[in-house]
Design a protein around this nucleic acid. Structure first.
Lengths: 350, 350
DNA sequence: CTGAAAGCGCTAACAC
DNA sequence: GTGTTAGCGCTTTCAG
């Protein structure tokens, strides 16, 4: 019988192969792998050489089994999320790798947990913590997880009652307030319409609140006639505006809810022969990459998704480490004035 | 000593908890979990009840350890990927769940394997197969993996020599050829410029080839003067065009390489007082969601990323199942004529 | 500073 | 049909 070969045939070298090649025990290899416990620097080198030679990569599953932690965080987002999504991801990723936590993202795009009971695959046991986007996880599941003190951060939504799950979002109210005030004070607008986002969307609710407050504080009446549904999407937003046009509803500005909707609205108005911004101002929210290239360039609110992702991941990492984090994190935004609002005070492009 | 409680304190019920609660062995639980082997329908029900009651979710790590397969596929994409990315993801995801393969995507956004040796974490052992985007994995790693016959599909790049790794991409050449022919035949353009994508980008190379061929076949000269770098991004593309303008280079059309670049170019021309499409036609590639909302609406090539993702995932799944798949899959594209090319034959909006 | 050995939670023969 | 049991590859006491 031959001794086990030093170089295994296939690529799947195990910790034992490494141990054998380095002439040490698996425990020692594990120590250098995880940088735990004291190991002679000589030994470290021997082990490391073996690792590179064998092209060894630890089996993540075995590792999480033994260590009862996965070094993986879960990201749960609704399937429909759009552009927004990609910068969110890269933000999360940069935080994760910056903290050496792990550079892998375990993401599912399908409904994570449905009311009819199929439980969350991610979650205790398969991830160390969860980043949860808007309403992609139902309340009972959230509550159960919270009771177990499973680390979670909620993006763009408030916590459920009684469970203080940390929350992160942009400051929607203030920036909407500013946006509308700008329209009134600097662009001289008086009949400003608002397009809501999807039903139940909290960002949309806060933006609407800011919109209402700004109107009131400037002595303008809020008319339900001028509040419609845009769903944060080009087509539905355009349809709403079209129907206003058809019904003879008049307005001199539209806060479209977000930039996506703004695109549809601008295009529609153009087709309908309504001049933007001469006849109607159009403003959005988000400052998507493309918004500055629209014609006219869009006045909007800068809400950097990558920063939000990064911060959210950082919070989660702290949580996992057992640290205390604030219940609510609200990220600042800022107004960016371009051509679509039609005022003179157009700021320099950032 | 008490017997172990039927309902464990924490959420992390194990297969043993379930077995105990259902009054069966772990093997049986495993059977119903994986739907393998014969189990009495009565027993199945008992087990399933226990599972829901305990809120049991299998430990993925333990599972992949025991089964020596992970039920996970890896997606490796360059960190910089943009919008494109999000529909790609959803395409992949829909294929994965449709095949019941698994609805999880294991993705890393950071350089997966650097030349200086740190090996691919994904790969044998931590995933069952890999979807690799453009040049996000270096050749030696690719070669090593290929030697082990590890299932992989390459997106938007050709295989390395000697290893026939299946490849998938859009038909860049034909659609570029069509696009340019359209510009010449229907829009009467003669001096057509081309903006290249990032260095080494194969899609860009094929688009350029189609561009050149179309010019030649129509008896037009290819001038290097009219070929520049747009990098598939708005700013660099705009800069290139600006510099042509500065140097007095004349042109009556620009194929911007992709839609992103087109946005920057249209905006720049507008600012420079050049009318699109009256003075200069602008055409892109991809048909991003926003392209129809540009002003003027963009004439471009429809290249649906979600379809590509879906098909790629399907190929990978077949590969994992040991089936044979074609070395090269080329997805069809089609021209969509909107306003930015300036011809009369503007088709109805799709 | 290093090794032996006991699991982590699950699957897959193998018995019965 | 169902239970027993031997690992899968790793981490982690516990000795030494």
């Amino acid at each position: 019988m031959n001794p086990a070969p030093i170089f295994p045939e296939n690529d799947r070298a195990t910790i034992e192969d490494v141990a054998r090649a380095a002439g040490v025990s698996t425990a020692t290899v594990s120590r250098v792998l995880n940088n735990s416990g004291k190991v002679a620097s000589q030994t470290i080198e021997r082990v490391q050489n073996a690792i590179t030679q064998l092209n060894y990569v630890a089996h993540g599953g075995a590792r999480s089994l033994a260590a009862t932690k996965t070094n993986t965080i879960g990201l749960i987002i609704p399937a429909a999320s759009t552009l927004f999504f990609s910068s969110l991801l890269s933000g999360i990723n940069s935080a994760l790798s910056a903290h050496g936590y792990d550079f892998l993202i375990y993401a599912t795009l399908t409904p994570a947990s449905t009311a009819d009971g199929n439980p969350l695959t991610l979650g205790p046991h398969n991830s160390d913590g969860l980043l949860i986007f808007t309403d992609s996880v139902d309340d009972p599941t959230l509550r159960r997880l919270a009771r177990r003190e499973f680390p979670m951060v909620l993006l763009h939504r408030r916590s459920i009652d009684q469970a203080n799950i940390p929350t992160i979002r942009f400051n929607n109210f203030d920036s909407s307030y500013q946006l509308i005030s700008h329209l009134i004070e600097n662009c001289g607008r008086k009949r400003i319409a608002f397009l809501r986002g999807p039903d139940g969307n909290e960002d949309s609710q806060r933006r609407e609140a800011g919109y209402r407050q700004a109107l009131e504080n400037h002595g303008l009446r809020v008319t339900t006639e001028l509040i419609g549904d845009g769903l944060f999407q080009p087509e539905p937003a355009a349809r709403q505006v079209q129907s206003w046009l058809d019904q003879g509803v008049t307005f001199d500005a539209i806060f479209t809810g977000d930039d996506n909707a703004a695109m549809g609205v601008i295009e529609l108005l153009d087709r309908a022969g309504v001049r933007v911004p001469d006849d109607v101002s159009v403003v959005g929210f988000n400052d998507d990459v493309l918004s500055r290239y629209l014609n006219p360039a869009l006045t909007t609110v800068v809400a950097p998704a990558d920063q939000l992702g990064e911060k959210a991941a950082e919070l989660l990492i702290q949580l996992i480490a057992g640290e205390i984090v604030p219940d609510e994190t609200v990220l600042p935004t800022r107004l960016i004035v371009r051509a679509s609002c039609g005022c003179q005070s157009q700021a320099a492009e950032s």
